[in-house]
């Protein structure tokens, strides 16, 4: 509380202290850099991090300007909640996606630059024109504490707006639920129907698991079928859609063949035996592609 009082005293002055000036000149470039980073980073997640940083810096500016409540709310709500929501959706959509920064709309970049420059110059020019030599400071307004003063205003003069905003939040929450909710348009299938459908489909057995002979994150490497060909269906459709499936490298296949060969040599079998027989023997004769469990983990650890 004493700090707050001190800052209040600071804000009450008609010109800013040297400390605040120093803070401003250090933090403002950082905030601008964060803003630029938000715009220019190719990965959305980096943009989000830059934005989060800028927001924290802005929270500090709020505090410096005597808006203690807002500063805290900025950190808690914006940086804490909203940005997390952003990251959450980012994860949902594809965190590692790299955006191309090549412009596809003709003249868009030029126009954007023109608009940005024009708007910026105009705003700054307007501000320069409207320069205020003196300013009042918030010492008087924050007399009984910033939060109390805000609350007084909020529940007297702005009570209607406050209530309406409350309604807006409720509606927004409901709207978001409604938007993301998917209406079930067909009847829920019974277990029996699901089983029958599954038998009728191409795959009766479970889909092959990915990651056989993987070298790192095995989920994105297709399994190898007994004849050595990679199985596309073993990779999650989400990854396939995102284009994040990794090819099984030819070297891996060659390694596999060599391994089989060595095994055959060790067991004294003729060399010409195909790799398939060896695999079959190792994983059992049920025709399923080899599951990549322990081997996959081992490979991944090797890869690191």
């Amino acid at each position: 509380m004493s700090t707050l009082a001190a800052m209040s005293a600071l804000a009450a002055e008609t010109s800013t202290s040297t400390g605040e000036a120093a803070q401003f000149w250090i933090l403002a470039p950082l905030a601008v850099a964060g803003g630029l980073g938000t715009v220019l980073m190719r990965r959305a997640v980096h943009s989000a991090l830059c934005l989060a940083g800028t927001m924290v810096l802005l929270a500090l500016f709020y505090l410096a300007n005597g808006a203690y409540f807002l500063g805290v709310v900025q950190i808690v709500v914006y940086t804490g909640a909203v940005m997390m929501l952003f990251l959450f959706v980012l994860m949902l959509v594809g965190v590692s996606q790299v955006d191309s920064l090549k412009e596809t709309l003709k003249g868009q970049r030029l126009l954007a630059a023109l608009c940005g420059l024009g708007l910026g110059i105009l705003l700054i020019a307007g501000l320069g024109q409207a320069s205020v030599a003196t300013f009042t400071g918030l010492a008087a307004a924050n007399e009984g504490g910033n939060v109390q003063a805000l609350a007084t205003l909020l529940f007297t003069d702005y009570v209607v707006a406050f209530e309406v905003t409350g309604v807006l939040l409720t509606v927004a929450a409901m709207g978001a639920t409604l938007l993301t909710h998917r209406e079930r348009i067909e009847r829920h299938k019974t277990q029996r129907e699901q089983a029958e459908e599954r038998v009728r489909k191409e795959w009766v057995t479970p889909l092959p698991a990915p990651g056989v002979y993987a070298r790192h994150n095995a989920v994105d490497i297709p399994a190898l079928l007994p004849d050595g060909t990679p199985s596309e269906v073993s990779v999650s459709p989400t990854l396939r859609n995102r284009g994040q499936v990794r090819e099984v490298h030819e070297q891996a296949l060659a390694d596999l063949a060599a391994l089989e060969q060595r095994t055959a040599d060790y067991q004294g079998r003729p060399r010409s035996l195909p790799a398939r027989a060896g695999l079959g023997e190792r994983t059992g004769d049920d025709g399923r592609p080899p599951a990549g469990g322990p081997a996959g983990i081992a490979e991944r650890e090797d890869g690191r």
């Binding site: 709309l105 868009q108 126009l111 105009l122």
Partner: peptide, 22 residues
Amino acid sequence: GFARSYAVSMFGGAAVLVAATL
């Protein structure tokens, strides 16, 4: 149909409004 093109005109309009105000 590109939202960004519309956004350009919006910002252009905003710039014009600011200019007019000034």
